[in-house]
Nucleic acid binder design. Structure first.
Ligand SMILES: [Zn+2]
Length: 217
DNA sequence: CGTGCCGGGAG
DNA sequence: CTCCCGGCACG
């Protein structure tokens, strides 16, 4: 159940698309003048479970152990009002600006917690089975730093049969687009977070199979 | 095979 | 403009 939070409107719909459309058409200008805000009309409605749960503030954090319920809060009235954007550690769980956070208290936001591996892997796609297996020719790389991670090192000598094939090493790898291609940003997007069964809770872009704009990389 | 998303399509 | 899908790259 999603309830509209507009001053004098308390409409309750069941689908966000519904409430979103309601807000856009009924309250927001609907095409006509005014408003060019970012896609976020999500800040004008709130989710409710079964009863009334008005008061768009003081979310509080009751049970620290369980409570798997995820509530989408939203702020109302965007008129000229001094809005502080330094609300990160106050009592409000989510900020009130463009990107709408998932409001999950346990949400991980550790950006760039990795990216510290030199990785001496040569830029070659490992799956090339045209005719000759360019892969498996591991001991031909002039590696500069023999990094020894923690595992993945021994027991890599495949083929119980000893040498039998002659030299069939390709001269140059067919490609090396590693870097000029979106290496796939790692971040759980709306799909994985909410699941396909709750598609109407994804961000607009995700629903349209476009680049997610809520959980950007 | 699931996931993210570009390019293309319909209304 | 909003809405959706085919299909491909990547893991
Ligand atoms: Zn998204």
């Amino acid at each position: 159940m999603y309830k509209c939070l507009w001053p004098n409107c308390g409409k309750v719909l069941r689908s966000i698309v519904g409430i979103k459309r309601h807000i856009k058409t009924q309250h927001l200008g609907d095409g006509t003048d005014s408003d060019q805000r970012r896609r976020e009309e999500d800040f004008y409605y709130t989710e409710v479970q079964v009863k009334e749960e008005a008061a768009p503030e003081s979310a509080t954090s009751p049970t620290f152990g369980s409570s798997p319920i995820v509530i989408q809060q939203a702020l109302a009235k965007p008129e000229a009002l001094a809005l502080d954007q330094a609300t990160l550690e106050s009592h409000l769980p989510n900020s009130a600006l463009s990107q709408s956070a998932p409001s999950s208290f346990w949400h991980i936001q550790a950006d760039h917690a990795y990216q510290a591996l030199p990785s001496i892997q040569i830029p070659v796609s490992p799956h090339i089975f045209t005719s000759i297996s360019w892969a498996a020719a591991t001991s031909t790389i002039p590696s500069l730093s023999p990094v020894r991670s923690r595992s993945l090192s021994f027991s890599e000598h495949q083929q119980p049969t000893p040498m039998l094939k002659s030299h069939l090493i390709v001269a140059s790898p067919p490609r090396a687009p590693s870097g000029t291609r979106k290496v796939r940003g790692e971040a759980k997007k709306c799909r994985k977070v909410y699941g396909i069964e709750h598609r109407d809770q994804w961000c607009t872009a995700c629903r349209w199979k476009k680049a997610c704009q809520r959980f950007l990389d």
